[in-house]
Design a protein around this nucleic acid. Structure first.
Lengths: 212, 212
DNA sequence: GAGAATCCTGACCATATGGTCAAATATCAA
DNA sequence: TTGATATTTGACCATATGGTCAGGATTCTC
């Protein structure tokens, strides 16, 4: 027999405890998944990180996969959000630089999320590939039109807006995903300032690329 | 220039059969590790991909870890090699653009290797972190001195050479590691030309960044 | 071509891990 | 307080997986 009344994930009637425990499990799972990937993570480790027993974790999420799936979905919106903030009404170069800034800040402040998405992407993103060619593509198309509109008006240098975005994603996320490499190459004397240096470098690079 | 044939892995065997079988296992393991990571890969899958039995695989490598470790080590040299080819004697902008080209070509032709290193790096590169802060750092230091020498002579625009390298690594490897995302965003009509577009974009970007 | 060395495999083992379940305990609305 | 509901857990199970081993098959050396 199943538990008499298992909480329904999508129901709006979650209890206080459900909200708290699910949030704690998400937090612990983000730690573990970011470090080891879906496959490398174990329920035992997630449970212990969350300070819960394994069956208790399974009580709130039906499976390890479910935790991973729900977590990915919950984070996807947050992750994509900076792109939405690019406004057609602002100053073109400032808007794009502000986007670079926001993305780099996310690498600094949310490295676990960055790694989670990177791992998922490297493994062909089977769980979010529909989003990539659906919602994300639509959003990119919209913003690319804005950017290429600016280029057509001569307000920024002509540029392929989509590859510009790839380069912004790549260069900013690099500092989260490849942190060991960055720190190793910069050495002990410079690693503490790595994000400030990155900010300076990327600002200069994209300013130079975009300024007419 | 580059030899047209793929770089061959020295599997380090003594007998003919050892060399052949170890190379076949490397090839199969690269497939599996790139797709699933160390933890997600199974000996059974590597064996089946190589057309061997599991005990036979273990006969040539003592453990799954050993395959992974040896493979990583064998590929590291190949992976870093393009950087060695930057010559202080060439034309500065051409030298750096040629490096970008070589790195992008590796993303196109060796995506499995790129993903293998990316996964290792994201998981903090416990097996190669000494190389990152040792041999790789030394090589980067050497080439950074060359590049910043060019800048000091006014032959390229002033630039932080190490962050320039990070940006080259990030932007070129992005097309291998995040291939699903690139294809999803570009859509079916453009994905086939993605590497040509990338080449064009990156050439333009780094030309603009470096030209005085 | 014989003996030694190398190669290969089916059967097997120990452990890790995702997940279940009955029953105990805590929480909360009345 | 009380009964219903939600939460928690120890014990347990099935499967996957890394790895072993004895002995048979193949290849190499002379």
């Amino acid at each position: 027999m199943n538990s008499p009344s298992r909480p329904r994930l999508d129901s709006g009637g979650k209890t206080r405890i459900q909200r708290e425990k699910r949030a704690e499990i998400f937090e612990a799972a983000l730690d573990v998944f970011a470090e080891a990937g879906l496959r490398g993570a174990t329920l035992d480790r997630i449970a212990s990180q969350a300070g819960l027993s394994k069956p208790n974790v399974v009580y709130y999420f039906d499976s390890k996969e479910a935790i991973y799936r729900d977590l990915l979905e919950a984070l996807l919106d947050i992750w994509i959000d900076p792109l939405r903030q690019i406004s057609a009404d602002g100053d073109p170069v400032s808007e794009i630089l502000a986007y670079v800034h926001r993305k780099l800040a996310m690498s600094r402040e949310m490295p676990r999320e960055s790694r989670l998405f990177a791992t998922e992407m490297i493994q062909n993103a089977p769980r979010i590939s529909d989003v990539l060619s659906g919602d994300l593509k639509a959003l990119v198309d919209e913003k690319a039109a804005v950017i290429e509109g600016w280029a057509a008006e001569g307000r920024i240098a002509p540029v392929d807006a989509r590859h510009l975005m790839f380069s912004i994603w790549a260069t900013t996320q690099h500092y989260a995903d490849f942190d060991v490499q960055v720190r190793g190459v910069l050495g002990p004397d410079r690693e503490a300032r790595r994000f400030d240096e990155a900010d300076e470098f990327l600002t200069a690079m994209y300013t130079r690329l975009l300024t007419v």
